[in-house]
Nucleic acid binder design. Structure first.
Lengths: 154, 154
DNA sequence: CTGGTTGCAAAACCTTTGCAAAGTC
DNA sequence: GACTTTGCAAAGGTTTTGCAACCAG
């Protein structure tokens, strides 16, 4: 099994909404937890747990990675965060509000975010032929980007 | 980067062809190496390194995993073996001659092999819209299988 | 013989868990 | 004050690496 214990996504377009959602569930809003959320809301790309730890490690002292993992897990349960896997590397985390799906180049490692609708046609084709509901949210669509194909890099 | 140091695939429909290919490259055909190849040629599904080690561990004594990994790597360089990643778990290895691509259910973990042509339509759609050449050989197409969708398991 | 290969042990990498101290409500 | 959360340390699973002994050609 590949899927984590995830609840439904919570609407939280802005950081404050997310903070409110944490409180609403009766959870404590610790500095460490808030910093993790901030890191993800400020990031413009998916972040590994290590990267989150680096950014969350602020004046209040750097959060250690165990706490970061625990927070990411809890926030994922709350539906504020989600993660996915890109090959060998560490898991990557984004705020749940970002519903984009990903294309991962096997050759250069570039991760490209695309709107879900942009893959609907491919999804429909796979569904028709295999009854399989493809989604590239918890794992990217792998392949080769245009650049690597041109370069003959791969 | 997600892709390993891989050469072009070598034609080796049968085990003996693979053994010959190893010799042809001037590499030594040790018992351990031959057993790794046998395991993959006899397997009817992708095998983790551990599973290969288990099956390769025969009368000549069980190969230790370090050697198995080194052999898998070398055989992959030769184009006789390839591997892919399915979420959290360990890497999975198959003989390179098996060109099938995979669908991985995020919910129940079922891995389904399909003929490459069966995904050509989806591939074409993604290529058209993003110039991205999707292939599900080094990483499966993730999603939900029909059963899990019906059951509402996910 | 010569150098590719093995086995063992140790390390690396990412992630999880135990536990007492500290923080939040 | 009750209960969550933290930080540190240690452990877990997969894969890699160092190195002396070994084996194939």
């Amino acid at each position: 099994v590949t899927e984590p214990h995830t609840g439904p996504t919570v609407e939280a377009p802005r950081l404050e909404d997310a903070l409110a959602a944490v409180r609403a569930r009766g959870l404590r809003l610790s500095a460490a937890r808030q910093l993790v959320l901030e890191a993800l809301y400020e990031a413009d790309a998916p972040l590994s747990a290590d990267e989150v730890a680096a950014r969350a490690g602020g004046p209040d002292g750097p959060s250690d990675s165990a706490s970061v993992y625990r927070n990411l897990e809890k926030l994922e349960e709350l539906g504020l965060v989600r993660h996915f896997h890109a090959g060998h590397g560490p898991g990557l985390y984004v705020r749940a509000g970002d519903a984009r799906e990903y294309l991962l180049c096997d050759s250069c490692g570039t991760l490209t975010a695309v709107e879900p609708s942009a893959l609907d046609e491919a999804r429909a084709s796979i569904l028709r032929r295999h009854g399989f509901h493809a989604r590239f949210t918890h794992m990217p669509a792998p392949g080769l980007c245009a650049d690597c194909v041109e370069d003959g890099t791969a």
